[in-house]
Design a protein around this nucleic acid. Structure first.
Lengths: 126, 126
DNA sequence: TGAAGTGTACTAGATAACTAATACACTAGA
DNA sequence: TCTAGTGTATTAGTTATCTAGTACACTTCA
């Protein structure tokens, strides 16, 4: 896994977890990969991986069965959706708009970038 | 200054510098506040503040006159504009679109959020 | 029962980021 | 010339993050 050097690794693993839940790769009440598996998968120390697990357990997005593993919570999907959607609307988007103002980028440019993005998605699917 | 806990402070000071140059508060060939003033202003240690100065000097956005202070480079504005616009189009925007996909947010929602944002800007100006 | 796979705890150490305090050479202006 | 304000360098110490290695209790399943 390639990490952004300016953010803690464990938080980037948390994002990886969020994403897997949002795309339904990890479904509710299903077991997710173990601490050691995740550590191998993203190539970090198990102690770093466990931070992500602990963080998400505190948010009640996943829970633990001793000796068995971690599971996505009953309402895990909704929880993540709420958390991330809120963050998106309240934090990310205002910041994007502010940057657009500073950089003198018109909304039309955003729109055409979006259309381009959709096109490229189509290409990749083929 | 309120900092995002998950990013190094000196990089957030760098953003503060970028912003001041982009809004033309700090103009080309003009002197910017001293290391100690910035440190006071954003409430950090001078040694932390100087990291931001050094970082921007390496990018040739600002330069130094010994015993006098730091100045915005001759083409400082264009440099910042290029750096930030590139980052915006290549990094930030693709990430935003990806998140929109994950969170099932339609482009129309973005558009209405943008209109709202503009409205609020107007209100604040009054 | 025992082996393999769980999470968990612990100690130790490295590095980056940040704070604190001090000292010093340089420049401008009274 | 002196003083105040520049940037700069140095030493020391704290904290968060991350790595490394080891050990142990619990659960499942053959």
């Amino acid at each position: 896994m390639d990490f952004d050097n300016s953010r803690p690794i464990y938080l980037q693993i948390v994002d990886f977890f969020y994403e897997n839940i949002l795309i339904r790769r990890w479904k509710e009440e299903e077991r997710i990969p173990s601490v050691r598996e995740i550590a191998m998968m993203v190539e970090v120390n198990p102690n770093t991986a466990i931070r992500a697990f602990t963080y998400l357990q505190e948010q009640e997005v996943i829970y633990n069965k001793r000796g068995i593993g971690y599971f996505v919570s009953e309402n895990g999907y909704d929880k993540v959706l709420t958390i991330k959607k809120n963050e998106f609307m309240e934090v990310i988007i205002p910041d994007v708009f502010k940057k657009m103002g500073l950089l003198d980028i018109k909304f039309e440019e955003l729109e055409s970038a979006f259309n381009n993005y959709l096109k490229n998605l189509d290409h990749e699917k083929k």
